[in-house]
Amino acid sequence: MNQHLKIRKIVDLSILLAIGVILNIIENYIGLMPLLPGVKLGIANTVGLLTLALYGPIEFVLVGLLRVVLAGTFSGFGMNFLLSLTGFLLSSAVVLLLYFTNKFSIYALSFTSAVFHGIGQVILIAIIYQNAMMFYYVYIMIFSGLVTGFVIGALSKMILLKIRRPLEVDSDE
């Protein structure tokens, strides 16, 4: 990779990271459904999907991990940080598994990411409280993850199609 492309990649990833952190922080203050705590649109996941699609799995993990840590720096390393980190680790592991099969589209990557992010959070809460009752939230997180994940997948696809030419991304369509 020549110097110009290397610098451009660093700049692009930094911009993606900055957008992800801002979206992450904003979303903490916007409950999608007050009756269902923890249910969020997960709009910051768009950044993760774009990074995966444009740069690959290593950058996807690095940007995602930095996003969670930086959001924690601004919002505090409390319970929200632990929930975000657990959700991210589980969801990114599943997303990478699907990604390497090369059989799933951005929609499937998005909704499995959302679903397993929720499952990871519920598992952590059940461990913290040592109470299996917390698994009551699992089906709520799965159903909501399917819906919000599908929306985020569609949004990511739209963005990818818009920025495809400037970023010289190869299309499979």
């Binding site: 090369n102 799933f104 589209s105 679903v115 369509e173």
Partner: peptide, 24 residues
């Protein structure tokens, strides 16, 4: 820039994944 592995069009595997998660 590296070739993208992420498909943009829905595949039949997406449907299987969706159904499996919905069933779960």
């Amino acid at each position: 820039m590296k070739k993208r592995n992420v498909k943009l069009s829905k595949t039949s595997f997406d449907t299987y994944a969706f159904c499996a998660i919905f069933l779960l």
